[in-house]
Simulated assay, not measured.
Amino acid sequence: MSIIIGCSRVSTREQDPAAQEAELLNAGAHRVFVDHGESSKMRDRPQWKACLDYLREGDTLVVRRLDRIAASEKMAIEIINDLQEGKINIKSLTEPDIDTTTPMGRALLGIVAVFAQLRVDTIRENTRRGLEHARAHGRVGGRPTVMTPERVEQAEKMRADGKTIAEIAKVLGVGASSVCRALASDKLNQD
């Protein structure tokens, strides 16, 4: 027997989830899982995990809005796809197009998923093209190194005097990994 399960979330401990719970119960939810003071960016929220464990094939997950379970469009699509693979429907109370219990809702969701993937692919392609253009013009992305030529020279002298990487990093006020990279890079350039 399929049932309706509600899932709710409030971002801070000070917020009261009672209004969301009431809406979900009025929508027919048999049980409501509430994450209190949890970010939707976190996939392993305690009550969200409990909700997923509780849901069975044929059940319907009802939410007030998709942002109660997912922080981004991409995450929402992934969650909806996971639910659909488990033959679990999803319905949003404030987003009427999100209702996989109807043929139109499933079709619209498929279209939304295609456009979300297109958006991700376009961003990836534009980023790749931008990085290639920057490299072609002698620019390399990333954070500038903290190891100036003077610091590299000082690090080499300290290393020759038998100082450890940790000691050098402390004296220079940089991370040990920065010292290692600089010394390795300088050694490669000398060879």
Results as ranks from 00 to 15, higher is better:
T94C: 06
E95T: 06
P96E: 06
D97L: 12
T101L: 04
T101A: 07
T102R: 08
T102C: 07
P103V: 01
P103G: 13
M104T: 14
M104Q: 13
A107G: 11
G110C: 04
I111D: 09
I111E: 08
I111K: 06
V114C: 10
V114F: 13
A116L: 01
A116E: 03
Q117R: 12
L118N: 13
V120Q: 15
V120N: 14
T122S: 14
T122Y: 09
I123T: 11
I123L: 15
R124K: 15
E125C: 05
E125V: 01
N126P: 00
R128Y: 07
R128V: 02
R129C: 06
E132M: 02
E132V: 00
E132T: 02
H133F: 11
H133C: 08
A134D: 03
A134W: 02
A134L: 08
A134P: 01
A134S: 11
R135Y: 05
R135D: 07
A136D: 07
A136C: 00
G138R: 01
V140E: 08
G141N: 06
G141I: 01
P144L: 04
P144N: 06
T145N: 09
M147T: 00
M147K: 07
M147A: 04
T148M: 04
T148F: 03
T148E: 05
P149Q: 08
P149E: 11
P149T: 03
P149H: 06
E150I: 07
E150F: 00
R151V: 02
R151H: 06
V152I: 15
V152K: 05
E153V: 05
Q154A: 15
Q154M: 13
A155M: 02
M158I: 00
R159V: 00
D161K: 13
K163I: 00
K163E: 12
T164F: 04
T164Q: 11
A166W: 05
A166K: 15
I168P: 03
I168W: 04
A169N: 12
K170C: 08
V171S: 10
V171E: 14
V171I: 14
L172A: 11
L172D: 05
G173F: 06
G173K: 07
